[in-house]
């Protein structure tokens, strides 16, 4: 058995509301993520999926428990762990290519290296013709492709994705899922992908983590053993979907 690249051990996160009330967002969460895995985390809204991802990214800290990357505890953001956000996060005053080169700029790479790398990643997401455009000139799907290129240009070991296609229309979303798989197969990164769409999770993931809510924890770990590209018309696809939807329904009704 290889060593996991990310280990989450007994993770808990508690918030305090302004009235001093304690809210348990995540409790006793355990997960091991292995190199080159494509993990999807699904769960009802408010189950702490995004919080979990932010803790792995080093943007938030755990209340207790340990999250480690290659055996080292994560305490702050690092270049080894990239992230793509749900909201558009490109810098609106920079051109597309400068946005993609941003991580390399922070790493103090020379301009020529930055541009070379950025161009190659723009090609990968099929947007090399838009290098000199500004983000506002691009559609939502294109902006998210640029955000993915930007995260990958930094050459992270792990890519975290927080509902990156949540704001896109259904058709664009399916196209983006295909493209993401192609990129993943080319680059072989480890991806942790948060979504509330069961369909998206089954289409993408090696392993689906179904989260329980209030507080968030691991409800079920499901291995998806279907060959890619996955066919949505396959009966196994539908069975898996209804099985996961049932679990989510339990979680949602539990709250009421």
């Amino acid at each position: 058995m290889p060593e996991p690249i990310i280990t989450i051990n007994q993770l808990s996160k508690t918030y305090h509301t302004e009235r001093g009330k304690e809210i348990k967002a995540i409790e006793n969460f355990n997960l091991q993520i292995y190199v080159n895995n494509f993990i999807c985390i699904v769960g009802p809204s408010g189950c702490g999926k995004s919080t979990l991802l932010r803790i792995i990214a080093g943007l938030d800290s755990a209340s207790s428990g340990l999250v480690s990357f290659q055996g080292q505890p994560i305490s702050k953001p690092s270049r080894d762990i990239g992230m793509v956000f749900q909201e558009y996060s490109l810098l609106p005053w920079l051109t597309v290519i400068d946005n993609v080169a941003l991580g390399l700029e922070f790493a103090k790479q020379s301009r020529s290296v930055r541009l070379d790398v950025a161009v190659s990643f723009l090609k990968m997401v099929g947007l090399e013709d838009y290098a000199r455009a500004y983000p506002y000139e691009l559609s939502g799907g294109m902006q998210q492709r640029v955000a993915i290129a930007r995260a990958l240009a930094n050459n992270p070991q792990v890519l975290l994705m927080d509902e990156p296609f949540g704001a896109l229309d259904a058709h664009t979303r399916i196209l983006m899922q295909k493209e993401l798989l192609a990129i993943w197969e080319k680059n072989m990164k480890t991806i942790v992908f948060v979504t509330h769409s069961v369909d998206e999770a089954i289409y993408l993931a090696d392993t689906i983590i179904v989260m329980s809510s209030h507080p968030g924890g691991v409800k079920e770990v499901i291995k998806v053993n279907m060959a890619r590209p996955r066919d949505r018309a396959n009966p196994i696809y539908g069975q898996l979907a209804s099985q996961i939807l049932c679990m989510l329904e339990e979680e949602v009704t539990k709250v009421k």
């Binding site: 943007l59 270049r79 956000f85 996060s89 810098l91 005053w93 700029e105 922070f106």
Partner: peptide, 28 residues
């Protein structure tokens, strides 16, 4: 937008990068 600052952080921005490459241009 907080996302701009967060995304710069995960890309490896230092505190001075955040100041000079994110906050000031965004607030300009």
């Amino acid at each position: 937008k907080k996302t701009l600052i967060d995304s710069a952080r995960v890309l490896g921005a230092s505190e001075s990068d955040i100041f000079f490459k994110i906050l000031i241009p965004a607030a300009k």
